[in-house]
Simulated scan of single mutants.
Amino acid sequence: MSTATLPEGDWIRGISIRQPYETCILAGAKTVENRPGRWRTGWVLLHTSKTVDRAALRIPLIGRTIRDRQLVTGAVVGVAWIIGCHQDPEGAPLCSEWAHPGAWHLVLDDVQELPLPIPARGQLVPWKPTPDLQERGFQQLPAFRP
């Protein structure tokens, strides 16, 4: 398997997201991730936290989206491009059925799922993936070009 030539330096971050929300992103349905603060645009490794929001499994929108998909936890499972980050004005309609009022909305695009999850630790805040973790992920996406 060939390895993509990737840029050097500080160009990618990791983002940890609880299940089942991460699986909704990988399925292509959830294009907005809610966060308490602003994030910069750019590439992120998608990491699943070790916990599952069990109450969310009863939400019909989520149930339909994740049907027959495995809820991997504690691993990097993909990569995505944050194309924007905004808050919807108070009283205005939300930008997505996935958006929460008052949260910062990270708008995700070009989501690519890894064929094999990579066990890893993450954080709620943006975190810097190790070079080894980046290499292991991008070996699974040989056509990836940032």
Rank of each mutant, 00 (worst) to 15 (best):
M1K: 11
S2R: 12
T3R: 03
T3S: 03
A4H: 00
T5N: 11
L6W: 06
P7L: 06
G9N: 09
D10T: 06
W11E: 06
R13G: 00
G14W: 14
I15E: 12
I15W: 11
I15A: 13
S16K: 02
S16A: 12
Q19D: 09
Q19C: 04
Q19W: 13
T23H: 08
T23W: 08
A27Q: 12
A27S: 14
G28E: 11
G28H: 10
A29G: 00
A29M: 13
T31I: 07
V32P: 08
P36L: 04
R38E: 15
R38W: 12
R38I: 09
W39T: 02
W39Q: 04
R40K: 12
R40I: 03
G42F: 08
G42P: 05
L45K: 08
L46W: 12
H47N: 09
T48G: 06
S49V: 10
K50E: 14
A56N: 05
R58D: 15
R58Q: 14
I59C: 02
I59E: 15
I59V: 15
I59S: 01
I59H: 03
P60D: 09
L61F: 01
T65F: 02
T65V: 09
I66N: 01
I66Q: 03
D68N: 15
Q70H: 13
L71T: 07
T73P: 00
G74D: 10
G78R: 05
A80P: 09
A80K: 07
W81C: 08
I82D: 06
I82A: 01
I83N: 05
H86M: 11
Q87P: 05
P89V: 00
E90I: 11
G91Q: 07
A92W: 09
P93N: 03
P93E: 15
L94S: 01
C95P: 07
E97V: 13
E97T: 13
E97P: 10
W98K: 03
H100M: 13
H100W: 12
G102F: 08
G102Q: 04
G102M: 07
G102P: 04
A103P: 00
H105A: 07
H105P: 00
H105N: 09
L108E: 10
Q112L: 13
E113N: 00
E113P: 08
E113D: 02
L114P: 04
L116I: 11
L116R: 15
P117V: 11
P117F: 03
P119T: 02
R121D: 15
L124V: 15
L124T: 13
L124R: 07
W127Q: 04
W127L: 01
D132V: 09
D132F: 03
L133T: 09
Q134W: 01
E135V: 06
R136Y: 02
P142Y: 05
A143Q: 13
F144S: 02
P146S: 05
P146V: 13
